[in-house]
């Protein structure tokens, strides 16, 4: 530590890091306080809850795309899968969340392990197109099994959920539950990023051929990322269906897949925190802009193109840049 103190540049960087952690903690606490700010505005709390779900969903795609470079055009497959499976389990089996949600996630992981074994052997465009195809198959399945899924009308009548037998009714409770899941998932993702597994994933994204020649089981690790990504995506879907008490086939549409991809690109691919912010910002922006103009999709399309060209690092890239400039000015 005395070495650190002796070096002013290092010292500044260390204090900058402390500041960053303090800032992040502050933002996390502020997020937890949302239900107190919105006591008079139940709609806002609901929107915030949706935003948290979108953030979990965005994070789940970044686990795949950010870690291994595999681009999915059909990530909504897992979102919708989670929503329908959880909704049906709740209706037909039990409203106990501690049973429904883990079962749903495990089911998604199993389906992802089987389909992924084929998909992750493909690269680039082929992989992207096959993920789109997979999501379209799931979309079609909803209509094939419309007796139980409700088809075009969506799945209705999901009962009030319980945790350890206690009904979860209050909007505040729901928000904290969702927010807790988001924080836990983000913390786990950040931890894995720094672990040997996370580093090995990055090596695959960087140079898959070299990774193979140093003995990394490239397809195995891609599959692991695919399964984890699907599991977390399904978790987001499950939470959405149980929170809304309903699921609709839109959740499985290619449009939804595009939106998830936009969360990630908007936030900053591979930064984990960025996509979380992307999901939150996008959800609020979508709500307010779409209430102002029916042409909102055009604006979002334009924004998307602008980000890809002007700020390919997304929100996180811009924030990081500003932060480094501030650090630089401290000199």
């Amino acid at each position: 530590m005395s070495d650190l103190a002796a070096n002013p540049a290092l010292e500044r960087r260390a204090s900058g890091r402390g500041l960053l952690i303090a800032g992040a903690a502050l933002v996390a606490v502020a997020g937890a306080l949302v239900p107190f700010w919105t006591t008079g505005a139940p709609f806002l709390l609901m929107l915030a809850s949706q935003a948290v779900i979108a953030a979990i969903l965005a994070l789940s795609l970044d686990l795949l795309t950010g870690n291994t470079g595999l681009l999915s055009f059909g990530h909504a497959a897992w979102f919708g899968f989670g929503a329908y499976v959880a909704g049906l389990l709740a209706k037909l089996v039990t409203p106990e969340m501690l049973i429904v949600v883990p079962t749903t996630v495990i089911a998604a992981c199993l389906v992802a392990a089987v389909t992924g074994a084929v998909l992750v052997r493909q690269i680039g465009k082929t992989f992207a197109i096959l993920t789109l195809a997979l999501s379209q198959i799931m979309f079609a399945l909803v209509f094939v099994a419309s007796d139980i899924t409700g088809g075009e009308d969506g799945l209705q009548g999901v009962p009030v959920m319980t945790v350890l037998g206690q009904p979860v009714v209050q909007a505040q409770t729901w928000y904290w539950l969702l927010y807790g899941v988001l924080l836990a998932a983000l913390a786990a993702s950040l931890h894995i990023r720094r672990s040997p597994l996370g580093r090995a994933w990055l090596s695959i994204r960087e140079n898959a051929e070299r990774a193979r020649f140093i003995g990394i089981d490239v397809n195995g690790l891609k599959l692991l990322a695919f399964v984890m990504s699907a599991g977390l995506g399904a978790l987001a879907g499950a939470l959405l269906a149980l929170f809304n008490g309903a699921a609709s086939p839109d959740l499985l549409s290619w449009f939804e897949s595009g939106k998830i991809l936009m969360f990630v690109v908007l936030g900053g691919v591979g930064t984990l925190v960025g996509p979380v912010l992307g999901g939150i910002v996008f959800t609020f922006a979508e709500h307010y802009v779409s209430s102002l103009t029916s042409a909102w999709l055009i604006y979002f399309g334009g924004l998307f193109i602008l980000i890809v060209i002007v700020a390919p690092g997304g929100i996180f890239g811009v924030l990081g840049h500003a932060w480094r400039r501030m650090q630089g000015q401290g000199r």
């Binding site: 894995i192 672990s195 040997p196 597994l197 090995a200 692991l224």
Partner: peptide
């Protein structure tokens, strides 16, 4: 990779 810990979290 050599030590077989590429999957360790």
């Amino acid at each position: 990779a050599r030590e077989g810990i590429s999957r360790a979290v």
